[in-house]
């Protein structure tokens, strides 16, 4: 399976990654090869087979709705790259 440079850049943008111009060709080839290998899945007969997303057949894990103590804002914000008034700071989002 061939994947184009444009497709690599499109998907990289979805994943919020920049790809250097000099790496795009190499990535396109590598990902193309990997996806070609994935195409072997097409040979497997999966008609009527249910997909598995968890191997232990868990059902919803429910618990009692009990009030717990929150560990505190300081713990949550301890690793914040930038904070102000008990909040995470991000660049301006709306104009």
């Amino acid at each position: 399976m061939k994947i184009t440079k444009e497709e690599v850049l499109y998907v990289a943008n979805l994943a919020r990654l920049n790809v250097d111009e000099e790496d795009v060709d190499k990535l396109a080839v590598q990902i193309g090869n990997i996806l070609s290998y994935m195409d072997t899945l097409g040979k497997a007969d999966t008609d009527g087979v249910e997909p598995t997303t968890h191997a232990t057949h868990l059902t919803n894990a429910l618990r009692e709705d009990v009030v717990h103590t929150h560990p505190g804002m300081e713990m949550t914000l301890a690793n914040a790259p930038e904070r102000e008034d008990g909040m995470f700071v991000v660049p301006k989002v709306v104009g």
Partner: peptide
Amino acid sequence: IIGTYALSSGYYDAYYKKASQVR
């Protein structure tokens, strides 16, 4: 990038769903 591709619109059935059935 591979994972994002496999989950992206139009490819989900061919990759993620198929792989989950093979699983």
